[in-house]
Design a binder for these strands. Structure first.
Lengths: 113, 113
DNA sequence: ATAACGTACAACCAAATGGTTGCACAACGA
DNA sequence: TCGTTGTGCAACCATTTGGTTGTACGTTAT
């Protein structure tokens, strides 16, 4: 999925199909490459579920799938959350009372600052 | 940057270095591939600014760069925003009074339901 | 019916990618 | 000092990727 987002052409296709549903050939006319090349980009986005195709006569209308974009964003948000919880853990260590020598591992050696 | 995130190995490296800073060889020992392969993944992440390397003796300590993760997430959030504003625009059209035949384009033909 | 259009797909190609091994070199430990 | 460890880098290889052209086929318009 991140792979599908890794090309600027595909991100642009995504952007355009968010704006409005449009046919593959309409999309292809926007780029300086062959129809087949754009067709491949579209199929990569489709495989990643970032867009959806719909048949209408001889045309295939392409529209973005906002659910998948949200999923990608949520995944990255999880990484941010990991980071925040790491910070929280360090804060916890620092907040611990430096008293009692009960533990066999000294908290001061857990995370050098 | 999305390209850097496109491999599960690299996302895993990112996750580990969010958890805690660690050397390249420590990272390498976690994966079933050569040191050089992991080294390359690390350099891809570094080029994308998703991680930062720091020299300490002969080791190179790697840590995640949360700013860049946030930027990626923000970018995807913008796509979501695009989608929302598209919906808002359609809502505006539907909210318009269907009276006055002044426009030369009939609102009923704008978006087939 | 026939031409033009929109699409799908296969074959092909150059470049990038993800992996390998090997070598060089600096830093550390005995 | 000398072996070991951690790193960087180059060369190489197989596969994937992003592009091309050509062909085929259904749909639309004349």
């Amino acid at each position: 999925m991140f792979h599908a987002l890794a090309t600027s052409t595909r991100r642009d296709i995504l952007r355009r199909t968010i704006e409005r549903e449009q046919s593959v050939s309409t999309l292809a006319s926007e780029y300086d490459m062959s129809f087949a090349a754009v067709q491949k980009h579209v199929s990569v986005l489709e495989a990643a579920n970032l867009i959806v195709k719909r048949a209408e006569g001889r045309e295939r209308l392409v529209r973005a799938n906002p659910e998948m974009i949200a999923r990608a964003r949520a995944l990255l948000a999880r990484y941010e959350q990991l980071w925040r919880s790491r910070i929280a853990r360090l804060d916890d260590l620092l907040a611990e009372p430096p008293a009692s020598a009960e533990e066999d591992t000294d908290p001061r050696n857990q995370q050098g600052d």
